[in-house]
Design a protein around this nucleic acid. Structure first.
Length: 426
RNA sequence: GGAGAGGUGGCCGAGUGGUUGAAGGCGGCGGCCUCGAAAGCCGUUGUAUCGCUUGCGGUACCGCGAGUUCGAAUCUCGCCCUCUCCGCCA
């Protein structure tokens, strides 16, 4: 959430930043509501002060067994007026909050200005896309031949955009989860957490998924339940410290969490319908950091490198893109996308998105830390480390052989009972 | 799902209509004492917001929301959450 004080004092800067994001927000209306609210609130507080003084007077008179009825009579109208003003303040407060919750995070100055994904900037590439002496197949073909990915039966069970993994397909998914968590906890210093896979609306508001992106979520249908399936472990993990004040010497706090992720994909009809690139449910290991404001951009660099290292260990070629102002997500101040090479699509595809949210989520979720007298908002950073389903896709497509079998990456073999390849079912 | 108990400051824990932002304790910070430390003693120690601004003052906050009242941590109603017992259950 944007700081209302910042909005008041940097109106034109903010207007420009939001324009670069292609966001149309009526900032003047916000300023107007804020001014009205403060005016009414001030008037109300003056009256309350008067009421408090009178109350003390009345208490004193009663103690002394004196008549207080004139004071009581006089305060009746003051009390009524306070109630009116209080209602007005509440109304203005609610409207102000509604509007503030819909204002995106202004992009950091280092973010390239651009209108859409074509303006994203390539930061670096790693590895060489492999050249095939045969026509490489995509993971759907490979998965069918190998008998490890069954989309037809998944559709029977749950509908489109689900996958049923079998045998080595299920096994490699589990192997990757363990591999990711082991690297991040043993080598990168993250603490493993296993969070709830459902979260309430306060939590989703904290991370910025609500109120604006309700349609992207699956809500639990039970009557009266305020619960949603999490779209990413970022939601429960970021909310671990909601409404808490941390100590400076605890920071940075680094969590790695496995969770399934549930997304309605409401806005993506007809997009990536083939295979397991875009599913209603997928596994992911998420990295989440809580940092001081001055260290957050450095910590974003580190977190991105931590995610990249997984691809390096799996020897999968990738590139890192900085998202431009027009492509960056609602809550993020800066985002790097890591895109893995997929021979089946002859393209780089996103496998991790690493963002610095600055104090945007911390303000919404009220996550602070203390150094000196005043508590300050922390900065939050998170990124995939990595999306598991898409890693399966990348491994199958990059490690496929002419006979339809798939070699298992060296780093993964200890997690697969030493197996070296996945062979077609006979 | 049924029955009961309870939600107060960083933590524990008093308070049951009127100097209560809230006793007391713990913890934190500063000081005294000491060669140093511990113990002991003294002092200090919430958050948010508004207004004049080295500082000071106002207002709000005792799970959340509504109500009664001149005045609510305290009384009434609704909701949420936690704990204990029973039932069901991986």
């Amino acid at each position: 959430m944007i700081d209302i004080k910042y909005l008041r004092e940097n109106l034109e800067t903010l207007r420009e930043a939001l324009a670069q994001r292609n966001a149309s927000i009526d900032l003047d209306a916000v300023v107007q509501i804020d001014a009205t609210r403060r005016g009414v609130q001030h008037e109300m507080e003056q009256l309350r002060a008067e009421q408090n003084r009178a109350s003390e007077e009345i208490a004193r008179l009663k103690r002394d067994k004196q008549d207080a009825s004139p004071q009581l009579e006089a305060m009746k109208s003051v009390s009524a007026r306070i109630k009116e003003l209080d209602d007005a303040v509440r109304t203005a407060d609610a409207e102000l909050e509604d509007r503030l919750l819909l204002i995106p995070n202004p992009p950091d100055a280092s973010v390239p200005v651009g209108k859409d994904e074509t303006d994203n900037r390539e930061e670096r590439t790693w590895g060489e896309p492999r050249t095939f002496d045969f026509e490489p197949r995509d993971h759907v073909d490979l998965g069918a031949t190998l008998g490890i990915l069954d989309f037809e039966r998944a559709a029977k069970i749950a509908g489109s955009r689900f996958c049923l993994s079998r045998g080595a397909g299920a096994r490699i998914e589990r192997a990757l989860i363990n591999f990711f968590l082991d690297i991040h906890t043993r080598e990168h210093g993250y603490e493993e957490v296993l969070p709830p896979f459902m979260a309430n609306s306060d939590s989703l508001r904290g991370t910025g998924n609500l109120p604006k992106f309700k349609d992207d979520l699956f809500a639990i249908a039970n009557e009266g339940k305020d619960l949603f399936l999490i779209p990413t472990a970022e939601v429960p993990v970021t909310n671990i410290f909601r409404d808490e004040i941390l100590r400076e010497d605890e920071l940075p706090i680094k969590f790695a969490a496995y969770s399934p992720c549930f997304r309605s994909e409401a806005g993506s009809y007809g997009k990536d319908t083939r295979g397991m690139i875009r599913q209603h449910q997928f596994n992911k290991v998420e990295l989440v950091k809580f940092t001081t404001p001055e260290s957050s951009f450095e910590e974003l660099e580190n977190l991105t490198r931590d995610a990249e290292r997984i691809l390096q260990r799996l020897e999968l070629p990738y590139r890192v893109m900085t998202l431009c102002t027009g492509d960056i997500a609602f809550a993020a101040a800066k985002t790097y996308d890591i895109e893995v090479w997929l021979p089946g699509q002859n393209a780089y595809r996103e496998i991790s998105s690493c963002s610095n949210y600055s104090d945007f989520q911390a303000r919404r979720a009220n996550i602070r830390f203390r150094r000196g007298k005043k508590p300050e908002f922390v900065h939050t950073i998170n990124g995939s480390g990595l999306a598991v389903g898409r890693t399966v896709v990348a491994v199958l497509e990059n490690y496929q052989q002419a006979d339809g079998s798939v070699t298992i990456p060296q780093a993964l073999r200890p997690y697969m009972d030493g197996a070296e390849r996945i062979a077609p079912r006979t």
